[in-house]
Amino acid sequence: MGYREQLEDLIAENQGLIFTKEVERKGIPRHYLTLLMREGKLERVANGTYVTSDALEDEMYILQVKRQRVIFSHETALNLYDLTDRIPLEWSVTVPYGYNGTNLRKSGIQVYTVKRSHYLMGVTEAETIFGRKIKTYNKERTICDIARNRHNMDVAVLNEAIRRYSRSSEKNIPQLLRYAKELGVQKIVRNYMEMFL
Rank of each mutant, 00 (worst) to 15 (best):
V70H: 00
Y119E: 00
D54A: 05
A55F: 05
F72T: 01
G108V: 12
D85P: 00
D82R: 14
D58L: 10
E90F: 13
V123Q: 09
N79M: 09
A156T: 12
R38H: 13
S107R: 15
K135W: 05
P88V: 04
Y81F: 15
I129T: 14
H118I: 03
E75A: 11
Y97T: 04
Y61R: 10
M153G: 01
L158R: 09
M60G: 06
H74W: 12
H118F: 11
G101D: 08
K106G: 02
N159L: 13
R69Q: 13
P88L: 07
Y32T: 05
R30W: 00
R69N: 08
Q68Y: 07
D54T: 12
V114K: 06
G48R: 07
N138K: 12
I109S: 08
D82L: 12
T113E: 10
T124F: 03
E39V: 11
V111W: 02
V157H: 03
Y137D: 01
A156K: 14
E127F: 13
S92C: 12
R132A: 07
R38K: 15
L120Y: 13
Y137S: 02
V114E: 05
I62L: 07
L78V: 09
V51Y: 03
T84A: 06
T49E: 08
T142Q: 04
V157Q: 04
Y81S: 02
Y61N: 04
Y97A: 06
M153P: 01
L78A: 02
N100P: 02
L158I: 12
E125T: 15
V157R: 03
T102H: 13
W91M: 12
E90T: 14
R132D: 04
A77K: 08
H118Q: 14
Y112F: 15
N103S: 14
D145M: 03
R116M: 08
S117F: 04
G98V: 06
R141F: 03
P96G: 11
R116G: 12
N172A: 13
D154W: 09
N149P: 02
L33S: 06
S92F: 09
G48T: 06
T94A: 08
T94Y: 02
A161T: 08
L120G: 07
V93L: 11
A77H: 04
K66Y: 00
A156V: 12
A46M: 01
E39I: 09
A126F: 05
T49C: 11
T142Y: 05
Y81P: 00
S73W: 01
C144L: 07
L63H: 05
T136E: 04
T52F: 04
I162Q: 08
R86H: 11
E160I: 10
S73F: 02
V95K: 00
R44F: 06
Y137I: 06
E59Q: 14
S73H: 05
G98H: 07
Y119D: 02
E170L: 14
E57W: 06
L158E: 11
M60S: 07
I109Q: 05
C144H: 03
I62G: 01
R30F: 05
S168E: 11
K135R: 15
S117H: 07
S92M: 04
L56M: 15
R132H: 09
M60K: 10
Q110P: 00
T52E: 08
R44W: 06
V95R: 00
N152V: 02
Q64G: 07
A46W: 08
H151N: 15
V111G: 08
M153R: 10
Q175T: 15
Y32C: 02
Q64P: 02
A126R: 14
T84D: 03
R67H: 14
E75C: 00
E127V: 11
